[in-house]
Design a protein around this nucleic acid. Sequence first.
RNA 1: GCUCCAAUAGUCCAAUUGGUAGAGACGGCACGCUUAGAACGUGCGCGAUCCAGGUUCGAAUCCUGGUUGGAGCACCA
Length: 882
Amino acid sequence: MTSERYNARDAEPRWQREWDEKAIFSARNDDPRPKYYVLEMFPYPSGRIHIGHVRNYTLGDVLARYMRAKGFNVLHPMGWDAFGLPAENAAIERKVAPKAWTYDNIAAMKKQLRSIGLSLDWSREFATCDPSYYRHQQKLFLDFLRAGLVERESRKVNWDPVDMTVLANEQVIDGRGWRSGAVVEQREMNQWVFKITKYSQELLDALDTLDRWPDKVRLMQRNWIGRSEGLLVRFALDPATAPAGETELKIFTTRHDTLFGAKFMAIAADHPLALAAAAKNPDLAAFITEIKRIGTAQEAIDTAEKQGFDTGIRAIHPFDPSWRLPVYVANFVLMEYGTGAIFGCPAHDQRDLDFVNKYGLGNTPVVCPEGQDPKTFVITDVAYDGDGRMINSRFLDGMTIEQAKEEVAKRLETEVRGNAPVAQRQVNFRLRDWGISRQRYWGCPIPVIHCEKCGVVPAPDTQLPVTLPEDATFDRPGNALDHHPTWKHVACPKCAGKAQRETDTMDTFVDSSWYFARFTDPWNAQAPTTRPVVDRMMPVDQYIGGVEHAILHLLYSRFFVRAMKATGHIAMEEPFAGMFTQGMVVHETYQKADGSYVTPAEVTVETGSNGRRAVLTATGEEVTIGSIEKMSKSKKNTVDPDDIIATYGADVARWFMLSDSPPDRDVIWSDERVQGASRFVQRLWRVVNEAADIAKAAPATRPADFGPEATALRKAAHSALDKVSGGIERLHFNVCLAHIREFTNALADTLAKGGRPAADLAPNLVPDLVWAVREAALILVQLIAPMMPHLAEECWQVLGQSGLVSEADWPQIERDLLVEDSVTLVVQVNGKKRGDVTVPRAAENPEIETAVLALDAVKQALGGKAVRKVIVVPMRIVNVVG
RNA sequence: GCUCCAAUAGUCCAAUUGGUAGAGACGGCACGCUUAGAACGUGCGCGAUCCAGGUUCGAAUCCUGGUUGGAGCACCA
């Protein structure tokens, strides 16, 4: 018997070396077994891993190790999402080259990742900033360009005039650049865009096939794509009021049923008609300038009041030539959606109602809710957007909304004005094409050349990769690529004349939109993918990451794979067959009396009879325990994975991450519970060592019969095996851990009942029980192996097993042990529990009924009333209805 | 504002998807052990499953309405 504590600091590096030397986690592309691809979202090399990474990668590792034991050829790779702004900021602030900074960080983080004991295939590692990766991305870009999936477009962008760069919407805070603080301008710029909207409908429809994705994520994508069916209507303009001879105004609506409730038309500030009118009206021009200025600040948009300006233009109602509607320029109409123009029906749209109430245009209800009297139904401050019957709508009166929509569409699409129908049915999407141009150095260069004579010329394949210059300087704002003295000057591949390289680089979301495919064959120097390999190893069977990527990253990847299919790089459409969004790691916050935050490492929490209090460990000063929040540097409520692993070991960190909270929910980091995990590690170590001492006496062959004690232990073992297997497959790791602890308790009980010390006892034990103890201990170790692989290896060795538990096959379940000979059914009378009855497993309903009705408790509860019905739920319950 | 999700013991969470509310842990209390020791072992679980209705033989689970908390989108016509 070993009385030594389990020493994680000694064991963990030892087993990590062992796995490494034997390269047991390398997947082979020619392995004939069925494949299983587990992938966690790859990290940005910020410098240190975060506790959230530990959770993310532990979740994936449990699955990878389990599937490996189940006999799959598991692909579980890791890499680095290595392009991006922080490297350039480091270059500016610390005078270190982005490349050096990035690769140093990768080296540091890789060391940290290794200390977690993840079963990763490091032979496939790459960083997206490796030219050997991005050269293929450039190739994909050029293939997409040829296929019409990339275009150059003039687009409105957020421009930071100080940093001289385009900002993403998230980088604009209160209308100012997040770094420079300069007021952000809206500029029209030429941008490269991926034509993701060509796949709007497909990306939407295919969501229904992704049955192993969270509903939440699918819903978010559905809303993001934002399909709406409506009608495109051409309103004629009163020629006397048109500023420059315009004849019509096109609008898009989904509520054409409410056309008779129209009170006004509204157009966006940058609508051509608005610009034409502004040219003749200085007041209108001033108004447009004003609302465009507000338009840049995201905050202002949220709270801005509805504002409009009457252009003087009058539109003619499509069903009544004598009905004129005023055309306003309004700040709530977006040029980017639909046609940039609407008709306003205030009674049934809140925005329109706010607008008319401000400008005194009135409203007419045209949909009356069921049960309301149309004569008294009025709208004042709240628009009605529910169901009902049409009123005040001439030929539509009495129809449902759907009938009215159909009638309006039918009439207007058959009416012709100037060789075209007045209206046509149209489907609109909220989804926009994906602008990928970034005025940044540290990104994948866009492989095109601008020639004064030939225009945009793709870089020839032979010139790939177009690499970043390593001697760029960061001493002034703007794009370092553009500033570089020589890099952009090249000869035109077509005419050999003077030309310039594109100095924009790609959005880093491009890098992460296909890395999962590259992992299948990162060694291919000739092409992005190797067809037979990528077609066999993809899709990713289980992808795991944070919900913050639920929309953009996942949608872009889904688009990218479709584009890769269209250009012959892959056979499938959907990259991720299974998707899982894990919760965050959160922690309570601690504040000193002066309001400043202190880290958990500086604090000692004491639990007394009147609750918990926290003091500074160094000084004893009392600190306030604050709310539980996402770990952040500003709140200082972070824990460092290195500290945890140094103190408790990786297995404890892993076990803690998996316990209690379901993986898709936030987990509260709690020192008490981490210590609980640590105590379990020691307890398991003791139990296994004790079992190992007994197991030495186990007979070599399986006994023919097992006594009751042995059978009970075997049932506990195989039941745990069954539940844990199922739990892992459904990613219910917290429940798996509960079953493992339950089984550990059962094994410990059996050992304790035999008496102590165990060594004296072994010879007295009957062989069947000794054999069962050995079996139980082995199963237990295999069950914990996916979660605590180092401890499992150590235990495996103690149990005298040769080889590695990481390479062992998952134990076979003996299903016979899971079925009981007799079952105990709960007996209810009128839904209330009155007792129970134990019957043979095979008992038929009539015998069960007889047995139940014979119970005294049942007779008493019935109180002489006749039995009306007896409901027998097999294996569970009997309900007597009296 | 719109859409969606959640709510079970002091705390974190289970409940085979409509069948006995309790698996596991944290904390607490009691007892034991007296050295595996900032441990270890044993024991202790009445909470109208957030509230009000409804469906059902039977509801934590399904339906309706609310309360509280969270998430996403945000003038999308």
